[in-house]
Computed example of a mutant assay.
Amino acid sequence: MDSRRSPLGRAALLLVALVALPAAAQGKKPKEGAYVPAPADQIPGYSAKVMPCEIIEELIPPRVNCEGELLEGKSLRELAILRNTIFARYGWAGFRKPWLRDHFQKQPWFKPNPKFTYKLLSDADRKNVHFIGVREQSFTERELRRMEDTIFARAGKVWNDVYEWKLKDGRTVRSCAEPQDPLDEKEGCTGANCEGTHSRDCFFREEKWYRPDPKFSEDKLSAEDRIDLGLISRSLGSFASDTGKLEKGAQASLDRVISVQELRQLSLRDLRLLRNTLYARRGRPFKSKILQAHFKAMSWYRQDPNYTDARLTENDKRNIALIRSVEDEFGGPLKDEDWLIDPATDAA
């Protein structure tokens, strides 16, 4: 969600939002001409009650446990839709991300509210937004990689990384299963019994839905796939848009200048994480607990107490300046208190 207010003004709005409940929640009839949200039971995924969830702060990153696995198994795209549904119910229509804007405009229950305010949200809404937001930030690098691989596997990708086994007679065979007479020595071993080795081809062959396609190309990915891959990419510490062609080279995708047009399609939450990823790649330590938890979950992050901004490349500095300019354009960068008191962030 866009926020064009000053940081001070937004902070004041937060205080009001946290103590104010909608008239309906207080048992009062809405004023004549007031916006009336769609009935809760007409909105898929929306809960008018506080979801039975708890946040486990001791874990890095913090996790969310819910009864009935309400949030389990959902992709980043599905979680973003679920969280933003809460805002959309009250008529928020200012989503910068085109795919989110298009999604809600197609919903039969959605109607824009030009007078949208956070005060329309109930206490249950705010708590549920926070649960979902923490869930979105809770994935480890390993989980994100598996999510990414699964998207490609469902489109038929083949990695050609089946295990290789050296046999005692000197031959080498490729097989997901360990042969009867593999070489005992570990030296030169590239099989499943070698530490750190993992075959995606072998893993997905165990899934009944997997249909390997030797002619796989990115053209086979759906629009939803590309959105999820963009979200995953930025969580992992690289950059890809939610709708464009996927970039190669993982973190190397941040070695180019990102356009303002691309940045304006990101939320303030996205922008803060992206800006600090540029610092994290050079080893910067962070005071923010949220940023600490996120980057500690990434294998590429090496915190260096001797870090200085002199390590930033000219391209890093250019991208950081561009990101900061877009953050300022939409109300200023988020702080931890903004992030944690959702919906005090821009919703997207």
Rank of each mutant, 00 (worst) to 15 (best):
R83P: 03
A344Y: 01
H103F: 15
R200L: 15
P61G: 12
W165T: 04
Q107F: 06
F216C: 03
N65P: 00
A310D: 13
E57R: 14
F152E: 09
A124L: 09
A321P: 07
E67F: 09
I55W: 04
P52A: 03
K287Q: 13
H294C: 08
D213M: 10
V36Q: 14
P61M: 12
D346V: 00
F239M: 02
R171S: 15
V134R: 14
P39K: 05
F216R: 07
D2N: 06
K97E: 12
S288R: 11
I227C: 05
E195C: 04
L263I: 08
R205M: 14
I341R: 11
R256D: 06
F204V: 00
I60N: 15
V50P: 00
F116G: 10
R275P: 01
E187H: 03
L246P: 05
A124S: 08
L8Q: 11
D309F: 00
K115R: 14
A297F: 02
F95M: 02
F110I: 15
A38W: 02
T313F: 09
P179S: 15
A177E: 13
A348W: 00
P22A: 10
G9Y: 06
K28E: 15
L144T: 05
E148C: 02
E72C: 02
C202N: 07
D316C: 11
Y46M: 14
S175Q: 10
E327F: 10
A310T: 12
D102G: 08
R5M: 10
S253C: 02
G94K: 06
D41Y: 00
P39W: 01
E58L: 04
E67H: 07
A310Y: 04
E206A: 12
F131I: 12
E164M: 11
R256V: 00
V257D: 11
G188P: 01
L266C: 05
P212S: 12
G249W: 09
E57C: 00
E78N: 01
L312F: 07
L340G: 04
E329L: 12
V173M: 07
A177V: 13
Q42C: 06
A297G: 11
V50M: 14
N128T: 10
P305A: 15
L15R: 10
K208N: 05
R211Q: 14
V134A: 03
D270V: 03
I132T: 03
K248P: 01
R275I: 06
E178D: 00
I132Y: 07
E262V: 02
T140L: 09
P343H: 07
T197F: 10
L21D: 15
K127R: 15
A48R: 11
D161G: 09
R205W: 15
S3I: 02
R4N: 13
D161I: 02
Q265M: 11
